[in-house]
Design a protein around this nucleic acid. Structure first.
Lengths: 124, 124
DNA sequence: CTCCCTCGATTACATTTGTAGTCGTTGATT
DNA sequence: AATCAACGACTACAAATGTAATCGAGGGAG
């Protein structure tokens, strides 16, 4: 159980791209983010380097070019973030947090049914 | 709709105390955190000052001493954090996030029933 | 009246983060 | 062969954050 490195907001944007389409080059990531983000190319390259240093990414080099892949799974990282959010904001109290989300956000009937089913399965 | 200031991890610890027992003096906060945290008194005072600057706290002075109170409600701040977490980690996708929490964490039967009830009420 | 203690204010400083520019190298272009 | 474009490495720099020490003023102890 190594300490999970902390992934910053900007770095999450990068990681989402990598998880979706790894292995990816810097150019791939830049391309994928061109529409949503106003980052300069170098900004994205800096973020990729930092993610390498942190051990969140790995790479394989082919002719001058790095092909980046995740070193940690999306699920591990998401779990880490869930825990830290739950702890920081709710002191770890799960139910109140869920209640807030459920009461405040919109869900389709179908989604509601799915959630109810999951709850029912837990209940045994 | 002013921009909500961002509350850092350490600042959340302070705010939880203030929301729980405002108005509170620096000494009160220090006392409340003495067991859980290893912070020096000055660290806590620095955090209080920063929260004042950010407009998350207000104070009332009585004989040299500040009595701090929240300038923002706990609910506002929690909502802000929920949104930012949901966006950063799940790109705003509520249901998958809820599913992860529900599947991973423990809930008592009673809590499960309460959640199901809330879901049922939404369904109309 | 003097000294000390305490309070908030101010200063300190390393690390992380956001956001980018510059540099040296190498493969491609003319 | 000379040039250039693109890549990753390295450098830059301000703001935020974690974590604290020091300072000046005023109130209480003696």
């Amino acid at each position: 159980m190594d300490e999970q490195p902390r992934i910053s907001d900007a770095e999450w944007e990068i990681m989402k791209v990598i998880w979706a389409k790894s292995p990816a080059t810097a150019a791939d990531v830049i391309h994928a983010l061109r529409d949503n983000k106003t980052w300069k190319d170098n900004t994205i390259k800096t973020l990729l380097s930092r993610l390498l240093q942190k051990g969140v990414l790995t790479y394989e080099q082919v002719n001058r070019v790095y092909y980046y892949s995740p070193a940690l799974t999306e699920e591990e990282c998401k779990r880490q973030e869930r825990q830290s959010f739950l702890q920081r904001v709710y002191g770890g109290a799960l139910k109140p947090m869920l209640v807030h989300f459920l009461k405040e956000e919109k869900l389709s009937s179908q989604e509601i049914d799915e959630l109810k089913k999951i709850l029912s399965e837990k209940e045994k």
